[in-house]
Amino acid sequence: QEIVSPECYIKHPLQNRWSLWFFKNDKSKTWQANLRLISKFDTVEDFWALYNHIQLSSNLMSGCDYSLFKDGIEPMWEDERNKKGGRWLITLNKQQRKLDLDRFWLETMLCLIGEAFDDSSDDVCGAVVNIRTKGDKIAVWTTDYENKDAITHIGRVYKERLGIPLKMTIGYQSHADTATKSGSTTKNKFVV
């Protein structure tokens, strides 16, 4: 009788179960009605099965989002785990949709599911990619904008993983500030 390696039949479990959400901008519906849960997964193999099956971000229509959040956290400011939180924001110019968008979003998801931020990964709620004509955005959401050490660690690791040059900076903004901003920019609470 042949002995089959457990590698062949045991999937690799992730630290967390994750939910992938899709948002499609239909102005005849409410914001919440436009948000749909695609699927949940908690193994490396099931992540790829889902990723290989769906459209790349760069193929989505303008106004669409993907959100990857820990199971039990909804991809909105109002969720208990988000309402005191904020995000590391990556803004992309129009050329970057072709050059960087899909690579950055995959790297972002790999950081999340692989728990790349060490103990600070506990502060991570999820990540969002927004496809927009004026410029796409990718953000990592964390749970509490006052957790400076965790946020800074996440920001440094994330910037390095995306290959963003040291001389360029990325900013962290609280959702409260984003929700109440008057102009087009939100002030940064932290920068790395």
Binding site: L14, W48, Y51, L110, I113, G114, E115, D119
Partner: peptide, 20 residues
């Protein structure tokens, strides 16, 4: 401890054929 997976490990599974 936490189940941490680095990027190369994760990427190694993208086109892994299913075992039979």
């Amino acid at each position: 401890g936490k189940r941490q997976y680095n990027r190369d490990f994760l990427l190694g599974f993208q086109f892994m054929p299913a075992c039979v």
